[in-house]
Amino acid sequence: SEHYTFDGEEQAIRFMRDMEAKNLKYELQIHNGKYIIQVD
Rank of each mutant, 00 (worst) to 15 (best):
A12Q: 00
I37G: 01
E20V: 07
I36T: 07
M19D: 01
K22Q: 11
A21V: 07
N23K: 09
D40E: 13
D7I: 06
T5K: 04
D40I: 15
S1V: 13
F15Q: 03
Q38Y: 15
R17I: 09
L24S: 04
K25D: 06
E2M: 14
E27Y: 12
H31P: 00
K22E: 06
G8Q: 14
I13S: 07
T5W: 12
E20T: 06
S1L: 13
E2L: 14
H31I: 15
R14G: 08
D40R: 13
G33V: 00
T5N: 04
V39Q: 02
V39D: 01
R14P: 04
E2D: 11
I36H: 11
E20L: 07
E20A: 09
I36F: 10
N32K: 08
H31G: 04
E27D: 09
N32L: 07
H31W: 10
D18G: 05
D7M: 07
I36K: 03
I30Q: 05
D40A: 13
D7E: 10
Y4H: 09
A21L: 11
E9N: 04
D18A: 12
T5S: 10
K34Y: 09
E10W: 08
Y4G: 01
N32M: 08
I36Q: 05
F6H: 00
E27S: 12
G8H: 14
A12M: 05
E10P: 04
K22L: 13
H31R: 12
T5E: 12
G8N: 15
N32S: 05
I37T: 00
E2G: 13
I13M: 11
E20D: 13
Y35V: 03
F15G: 02
K22R: 11
L24F: 08
Y4V: 06
K22N: 09
G8W: 12
I30H: 05
M19P: 00
L28W: 11
E9A: 10
A12W: 04
A12Y: 05
D7C: 13
N32W: 04
L24P: 01
D40S: 13
D7R: 03
D18K: 08
G33A: 03
V39H: 03
I37Y: 01
E20S: 06
L24Q: 09
N23Q: 08
K34W: 09
I30D: 02
V39Y: 04
Y26F: 11
I37E: 00
Y4L: 05
H3I: 15
K25W: 09
E10C: 14
E20Q: 08
Q29M: 12
L28S: 03
Y26K: 00
I36N: 04
Y35W: 13
M19F: 04
Q38R: 14
G33D: 05
Q38N: 10
M16H: 01
R17N: 10
R14L: 09
S1H: 14
H3R: 14
I36S: 05
E2N: 13
L28E: 01
H3L: 14
F6E: 01
Y4K: 03
D40V: 15
S1M: 12
E10D: 10
G33W: 01
I36E: 07
Q38P: 00
R14T: 06
S1K: 13
H31D: 10
H3W: 15
Q38S: 14
A12I: 02
K22P: 02
D40N: 12
K25T: 10
Q29W: 12
A21I: 08
G33L: 03
A21Y: 08
A21M: 11
N32Q: 08
Q29R: 13
N32P: 01
G33K: 03
A12H: 01
D7H: 07
F15T: 03
Q29P: 00
N23I: 02
V39T: 05
I30T: 04
T5R: 05
M16Q: 03
F6V: 02
G33F: 02
G8Y: 14
A12P: 00
T5I: 14
G33H: 05
E10G: 05
Y4M: 05
I30F: 10
R17V: 08
I37D: 00
E10K: 05
L28P: 00
I30N: 03
E2H: 15
V39N: 01
V39C: 03
H3G: 07
D18Q: 10
E9F: 13
D7K: 04
R17P: 01
A21D: 09
K25S: 10
M16W: 02
E2A: 12
K22H: 10
M19A: 08
I30V: 10
Q29V: 14
L28K: 02
Q11M: 10
D18F: 11
N32I: 03
A21T: 08
N32R: 05
Y4F: 11
Q38H: 15
H31M: 12
N23V: 02
Q11D: 15
G33T: 02
Y4N: 02
E9R: 08
D40K: 14
I30K: 04
R14D: 12
E2R: 14
Q29K: 12
K22I: 07
H31E: 12
Y35M: 03
M16D: 01
I36A: 02
N23S: 08
G33E: 04
K25L: 08
E27T: 14
I13A: 08
D7L: 08
E20G: 04
E20W: 05
I36G: 01
S1P: 12
Q38L: 15
Q11L: 09
M19G: 02
T5A: 09
D18I: 11
Y26T: 09
N32D: 12
E9H: 09
I37R: 00
I37N: 00
E10Y: 06
R14V: 07
L28V: 12
R14S: 11
Y4A: 03
Q38D: 07
S1W: 14
M19R: 01
E20M: 08
E10R: 04
